[in-house]
Design a protein around this nucleic acid. Structure first.
Lengths: 229, 229
DNA sequence: GCGCACTATCGTCAGACTGACGATAAAGAG
DNA sequence: CTCTTTATCGTCAGTCTGACGATAGTGCGC
């Protein structure tokens, strides 16, 4: 049906899965069981099945390779990578997805991996340990996440509900590498329409005066944005 | 080299090519010569060659199908589309690119098309005339372009150099559907570091008092952004 | 050559928002 | 019951924006 001179290619999805745990900005990595790059760390991912939509493949890999359900997950397409030599097995085009999840605890390795682990984003980016072009994909995903914290409410997708405003502030500190001022952050978040919804509960888990607990609000975009400055 | 159960797919690039001409926001379309959708209007695009990088395929199609060189063109990846049934010929994953060009005049149809034309974005989006899922791709591209005018200097890629500030303002009006205030726009653009570079020349082509001519500046991001409000 | 129409550019001003930081509130620790 | 710690509210000056007034240079019609 398609003229023969056009070579078909393999299509994969790769996942940049990000979370924050105790003040650290982490990405999910797996250790590859098979060649190429057997034994090396990589981003989770896999081939798109014959009749499978791209986003469905991403959801499936998230579940298979990381044991992460799609319920509390923000998942968006990042971009595609198609350099002809990016995979030694042949021509493979990868559609990368970005997932932001509240810390789900230790990951369980899927069938293609002999280990899975959360690793600090900074050290992954500095240490060229990732297989394929996954360092570039991770860099793009991290950049997108950092940018989106500015003008969306997605920061709240990186912690479990309910959370205090200071816990949310720690997310921004971990992702941006710089803590916003607590008082200005509190003013901004609590006055931004629909960013967070207060509950009746408070907690003292951070020590000090009890802090109100919040849930994620319905707003997705922030007007005006929160500036990294 | 890759286990047999994973079916290879065809990979294409599709192009959302946008420009502004006499106050109208236009997208490049071609009329398809071949099935599927022969005779229907579509976005320019085509198959990625066996050893060709994705962006190279986009540059090639831009040149082949629209006669647009890559010199004065802003080209960025938009996103990928991979619904299993999006192409009746079989499984085709398309990587869409967004191009912003200064009006290059009437397009010349490439070999896969029997016509090429600039059409107003709004009417294309309203009238469900585009083949495949190209209406969705165009919508995403237009949305990206509208958003990027806010926080980048890309508006200047939509008009030929040199230009007056008012001509640039007309670009914003065409893309956003609403003209910013001339005086505030002038203040903002001329005070934003590196957005535009003044020349020594002026023009009276708009009538009235001579306007200074500007070139595109080196800045790509605007801090703070220009608000659609 | 003169005033008019037109666009370009500069200025003004109130309101919104930000960053820096002071001050007070409400817990637990000792 | 005082100290430490975190939470929350306030203050204030500086920046940026939107609305809009005012002035500056052109070409055009007469």
């Amino acid at each position: 049906m398609i003229r023969g001179m056009v070579a078909p290619m393999h299509v994969t999805v790769d996942l940049v899965v990000l979370t924050v745990r105790v003040g650290e900005f982490l990405a999910l990595t797996i250790r590859r069981k098979l060649d190429p790059f057997a034994g090396r760390w990589a981003l989770p991912g896999g081939f798109v099945l014959e009749r499978e939509d791209l986003v469905d493949a991403a959801v499936r890999e998230l579940s298979e390779e990381a044991g992460i359900g799609s319920m509390r997950t923000h998942l968006e397409q990042l971009r595609s990578y198609g350099q002809p030599d990016r995979d030694p097995r042949g021509r493979v085009v990868s559609v990368a997805y970005l997932a932001l999840v509240p810390d789900p605890g230790e990951p369980t390795a899927g069938s293609d991996a002999d280990a899975a682990a959360w690793k600090p984003v900074d050290s992954l980016l500095r240490s060229r340990t990732l297989a394929f072009d996954h360092a570039a994909i991770l860099r793009d995903g991290v950049e997108r996440a950092r940018a989106k914290l500015e003008y969306t409410s997605l920061g709240a997708m990186l912690i479990p509900e309910p959370f205090t405003i200071n816990e949310l502030r720690a997310v921004y500190g971990a992702v941006w590498g710089r803590e916003p001022d607590a008082r200005n952050f509190h003013r901004k978040v609590s006055s931004a329409e629909g960013f967070v919804e207060p509950t009746d509960e408070t907690t003292t888990r951070g020590g000090g005066r009890p802090a109100r607990l919040y849930l994620r609000g319905p707003a997705r975009l922030l007007h005006p944005p929160m500036l990294r400055s």
